[in-house]
Design a binder for these strands. Structure first.
Lengths: 150, 150
DNA sequence: GAAACTCGGACTGATTTGGTCGCATATTCA
DNA sequence: TGAATATGCGACCAAATCAGTCCGAGTTTC
């Protein structure tokens, strides 16, 4: 129903948290989990995925933990979500190979692919450094005026 | 993982099909299902939902079927999806009541709500009358320039 | 060497999704 | 009038996905 998984939510929260503490030492998965009431083991696996995707640096051992691998201004929500949940497609029939196995005569695939691109672009524009409770975004109504004029 | 359900896909295909045959008699669920290889019973239930949402008119009995209740230019993809899958939220914690039961200190809810609005607007702009294989859409890259300038 | 971390697969229960079945009602037409 | 063909709707089931736990590693610090 067009929603993010909880894992993706957790991942975004963790990344935002790390972005707000770039100065500090590395933060452990438990530290972050406790701060938001997230199940620690669940968050641990999520952070490992973000690590493997190159978004985080990790340090093993006591005093270890995670740290952003890049400037928080350069990390998009899209990257975080994709690292956790894999590639996102709005159409349920689309696969990585790009084809629609189910209905050969599917006629909505192409228009929805465009929608998919729009959503991707929106998510790519959102950087974790910008995620504040009151983000300075251009009113979304305005943006809509630039889509589907045809 | 941010994807439409198959039911929503089917619904959009059916609506598009009906939009292309406004001139004809009412089309039965089976007619449409056969045209795209959709399980007839599954599509029947979807069409009933679209009917209850006021997007379709139905006629019982032999020679019966479905017909668009409104001008296809006035029906958005958003309406179709919402009629089938219910209200869509990008955040997994958001409920109809608007609150995040899980993590009280959830800090990404507000930024994601804005993303949600953007997606809604995009889907509302897409009318089923416009859904062609090669839709005339403004390049999505352009639209992204209007989001998140902060 | 103990403590506190990360690393990663295996596993389980809950929820959602995709689809079917059956029965009731409505309409057409012979 | 009654058979054929529609919609209307709830119940049901199997498969997939999601959310979360468990456990046994390896690493670093002290």
């Amino acid at each position: 129903m067009l929603k993010l998984t909880k894992k993706a939510d957790y991942g975004l929260m963790a990344m935002k948290h790390l972005a707000e503490h770039v100065d500090r030492e590395a933060l452990s998965a438990k530290d972050i989990a406790d701060a938001y009431g997230i199940p620690p083991q669940a968050l641990a696996k999520i952070l490992q995925r973000l690590m493997r995707a190159g978004l985080l640096e990790s340090q093993c051992g006591i005093k270890g933990g995670y740290r952003l691998a890049r400037d928080p201004h350069s990390i998009s929500a899209y990257e975080v979500i994709q690292a956790i949940d894999g590639p996102l497609f709005i159409t349920s029939c689309t696969t990585l190979r790009g084809e629609c196995g189910q209905s050969l005569r599917c006629t909505v695939r192409e228009p929805l692919r465009k929608v998919n691109q729009s959503i991707e672009e929106v998510l790519k524009r959102i950087r974790i450094a910008h995620m504040r409770e009151e983000p300075e975004m251009v009113e979304t109504k305005q943006l809509a005026d630039y889509v589907m004029i045809s």
